[in-house]
């Protein structure tokens, strides 16, 4: 091969020739480079989300376990979780930045997904306020507070699966819906442990399985 890599890459190479092995090597290298530059590393993202999820739900469970009667997490626990949630946002926005220069349906889909998460989680907290205002007990509010975000995020995962034909996300989404549906039966304190131990490792497993989004 003549002049296909390195400092000579920027030469006008219209007259250069390649043998088939060189062409195959260029295709492999260019494809790998494009994927690394234009697609977020979903394995890392889901691994980070898994760790953050275990920490967030774990912190609240530590704050509420053994409460009799149950009165809910203290403000310090909420502050820690808010900090963790902010980290998730930063990581997710970092993944969006990986697609810099891209435009089109896949970028719109990513932002629609992020906005759906914000809208869903925001609605959960608004609804929680309504429950408190209507006189719901701390136990009822606690179960709702732990389960509703899992339900929302699980459904979003499943919706994303249908858009991207990603079976790892389908499994994760259905599992989260199941955890949200039955986790509350563990009670207002233990439901946080269920959330930490059932969803966090599932996110880590999804990272290991590889939720790489296929290109059409």
């Amino acid at each position: 091969m003549q002049d296909s890599t390195g400092t000579d890459r920027d030469r006008n190479d219209q007259d250069l020739t390649m043998d088939p092995a060189d062409a195959a090597a260029i295709m492999a290298e260019a494809s790998d480079r494009a994927r690394r530059r234009l697609q977020p590393d979903y394995r890392v993202l889901y691994a980070i989300r898994g760790v953050i999820w275990i920490l967030g739900y774990g912190i609240i469970w530590l704050a509420v376990r053994g409460q009799h009667p149950f009165h809910g997490p203290n403000p310090g626990a909420y502050a820690a979780v808010a900090l963790i949630a902010a980290l998730v946002v930063v990581v997710t926005l970092g993944s969006a930045r990986a697609e810099t220069g891209l435009r089109g349906p896949s970028v719109l889909r990513l932002w629609a997904y992020l906005l759906s998460i914000l809208a869903g989680v925001g609605a959960v907290f608004a609804l929680e306020g309504a429950l408190v205002r209507a006189g719901a007990s701390p136990s009822v509010v606690g179960i709702f507070e732990a389960s509703a975000p899992i339900l929302v995020l699980g459904l979003l995962c499943f919706a994303r699966f249908s858009a991207e034909r990603n079976w790892a996300l389908a499994g994760l989404g259905l599992w989260m819906v199941l955890v949200a549906a039955v986790g509350g039966y563990a009670g207002p304190a233990t439901v946080w442990a269920v959330g930490a131990l059932a969803v966090g490792p599932a996110l880590l497993l999804t990272a290991a399985v590889g939720p790489r989004v296929p290109r059409a």
């Binding site: 494009a34 234009l38 891209l102 089109g104 349906p105 896949s106």
Partner: peptide, 8 residues
């Protein structure tokens, strides 16, 4: 490597 409809 881009999806159909995407541009760079």
């Amino acid at each position: 490597t881009l999806r159909d409809g995407d541009d760079l």
